[in-house]
Nucleic acid binder design. Structure first.
Lengths: 199, 199
DNA sequence: GTCTATACCATGATAGAC
DNA sequence: GTCTATCATGGTATAGAC
C-alpha cells in the first residue's frame, strides 16, 4: 500500500484502515465520510491522504487484502482423502474464517458495486477464484459419484450464500458456540449435495 | 404513501418510486442523489418533494411495500399435506418471487442499515415475520420427525441465505431456466434438512 | 507527519414564480 | 404540478505552515 513519502509512522496507516473497515462495514462505503474516518483515528481529514491516494483505494485495499488472505488460508488447508471430507473442511473453514472477520467479509460481499471498473474487475477475479475452490470440490464429488448435484455452478453459489449468511446473525457470546455452528453448517452443506446418508 | 396535496397525477408518484428502486438497487441508497432520481423520471429535484417527505421515506416505503407484498403472497400459498411439501413449496416460492423482483429484494436485504431507528424497527419486524414463516415449517417437520435439524433458528437463517443468494447470479435468459433453478434449490433445501432420501 | 485552512463541488431540502 | 433559484451543509481533496 503506497505511502507517499519515506515516512516513519508504522501505526497510523493500519489504524486508518481499521477505522475505515469498521465504519464501512457498519454504515456502508458511500455513507461514510473521510472526516468520520479521520475522527475515529484522531487525526484531521487531510492527514488521511498521506496514507491513501483516495477513498476508493482505501476500499479496494481492504477488499484485496481480505480476499488474498482468504485464498492463502484456503490454499494452506491440509489435504483430505475424499470429496466429502474436503467439503466438510471447506464449510467449517469458511464459517470459522467469516465468523472471525465479520467486517472484512461484509465489505467484500456488499461493496463491490462501489468499486470503479478497473478495481471491480480485480476484486471480482479474486472472489471468483475463491468460488472456484468450492466448485472444484463439488465437481470432484460429482465425478466420483458421491455428490448429487445437477449443476455445479448453482450448487457453488447456493452453498457459498448459505455459509456466508452466518455473518447475518452469529454473534460472539450468543446462544450457540462457534464450534457447534461450524458443525451444523457443515452437516447441512454435506446433506444438501447428497453426501451424507440420512439417519 | 402521503402525497402532500390533493393532486391529480397518478403517474409521477409511481415513476419516482420505480426510479428510486432501480437506482438504489444498482448503486446503493447512500450513493444515489435525489437529483439522479429526478433526472431518471424527467422532473426537477424539487418536484420529488411533492411525492415524498424526504429521501429516507422513499427507501422505507419501498422496503415496506416489498415486505408486505411478500408476506401477503406467502399467506396466500395453498395448504400442503406435509412439512416436506410445505418446505418445497416455500423454497420454490421464495426463489421465484425473488427472481422476479431482484431490485426490491436487494434493497430490502442490503439497505436496512440506512434506515433510522424507528423505520428500521418496523421493517426489521416485517422481515422477522417472513423468517418465522420458514421457521414454523422447519419446527413442524422437526416435531413430526421428518426433518433432522439441531437448531431451527440456525437452519432458518441458513436456508433463507441460500435461497436469497439466487439473486447474486441468476439472470433472465441465462443458462438455466427459472423452473429448473426453483427445482434445484428446492431439492437442495429439502436435502439439507434431511427431508429427502438419498438416491 | 500532522496540522489548519480552504478550494470547489454535490447534497438534501425549501421558496416562490408560473 | 413543475419549474428555477437558492440555502445551508457537508463531501473529497489539496496547499502550505510548522
Amino acid at each position: 500500500m503506497a505511502r507517499k513519502t519515506g515516512s516513519h509512522s508504522e501505526i497510523t496507516g493500519p489504524r486508518i484502515r481499521a477505522a475505515a473497515q469498521h465504519l464501512f462495514a457498519r454504515h456502508g462505503y458511500a455513507a461514510v465520510s473521510m472526516r468520520q474516518i479521520a475522527a475515529e483515528v484522531g487525526v484531521q481529514a487531510g492527514a488521511l491522504y498521506l496514507y491513501t491516494p483516495d477513498k476508493q483505494s482505501l476500499l479496494a485495499d481492504l477488499m484485496r487484502d481480505h480476499l488474498e488472505s482468504l485464498l492463502a488460508a484456503t490454499a494452506a488447508l491440509p489435504p483430505q482423502p475424499s470429496p466429502a471430507d474436503r467439503l466438510a473442511q471447506f464449510a467449517r473453514f469458511h464459517i470459522g474464517y467469516h465468523i472471525e472477520r465479520p467486517d472484512a467479509v461484509f465489505i467484500a460481499y456488499m461493496e463491490l458495486r462501489n468499486l470503479e471498473p478497473a478495481q471491480f474487475a480485480e476484486i471480482e477475479a479474486l472472489r471468483r477464484r475463491y468460488e472456484d475452490v468450492l466448485e472444484d470440490i463439488l465437481r470432484a464429488g460429482h465425478r466420483a459419484g458421491q455428490f448429487s448435484i445437477p449443476d455445479s455452478k448453482l450448487a457453488t453459489m447456493a452453498l457459498i450464500a448459505m455459509l456466508t449468511g452466518v455473518t447475518n446473525w452469529y454473534r460472539e457470546g450468543g446462544r450457540l458456540r462457534r464450534h457447534d455452528v461450524e458443525a451444523i453448517y457443515a452437516d447441512m452443506a454435506l446433506k444438501s449435495v447428497g453426501a451424507l446418508a440420512q439417519p
